[in-house]
């Protein structure tokens, strides 16, 4: 769902407004990308909210434990802050998933959720000064 939202966002954005990275998981290398970011938006599916529900919340640097393979958004922000001295504002936009098993296509709820997530992200980006 996060991938789909990122694809929709990428299609809707003019070039050079934002860098969109699509990944299976957040790895430490992403910390380097945050160095000059004015805003970081994480798009992800969620299993701890109702299917179809879209939420948006700020993310702060957080977390002591760090794995080499997958970081939480808060841990990634912590690493960026400690290693690169940057602390960009960050937002997590989550979409409640109905079904997480592999399939040929997304469910209608998933598609709708991804579209809403992309819309929210687009609104955040267009409100940035000089966006």
């Amino acid at each position: 769902m996060g991938w789909r939202a990122a694809e929709l966002l990428g299609a809707a954005l003019p070039e050079d407004v934002a860098e969109i990275s699509i990944c299976h998981q957040l790895t430490p290398e992403f910390a380097a990308k945050l160095e000059n970011a004015r805003l970081v938006i994480f798009l992800d599916a969620a299993v701890d909210q109702a299917p179809g529900e879209v939420t948006q919340r700020p993310v702060e640097p957080d977390g002591q434990f760090i794995s080499s393979h997958s970081l939480t958004p808060g841990q990634l922000l912590s690493l960026a802050k400690l290693a690169y001295g940057c602390s960009p504002p960050a937002v997590l936009i989550s979409g409640g998933a109905l079904e997480m098993n592999p399939g040929d296509s997304m469910t209608g709820i998933g598609e709708s959720c991804a579209a809403q997530m992309a819309e929210l992200a687009l609104n955040l980006l267009t409100r940035l000064p000089h966006a």
């Binding site: 430490p28 380097a32 002591q64 434990f65 760090i66 080499s68 690493l79 400690l82 290693a83």
Partner: peptide
């Protein structure tokens, strides 16, 4: 609880940056 990459970044950020860059 500090023996991880975050702990390294806190103690020696340039080492964490070099490791990230090389990877």
């Amino acid at each position: 609880e500090t023996r991880n990459l975050l702990g390294v970044a806190a103690a020696a950020p340039e080492v964490a940056r070099d490791g990230i860059r090389l990877r």
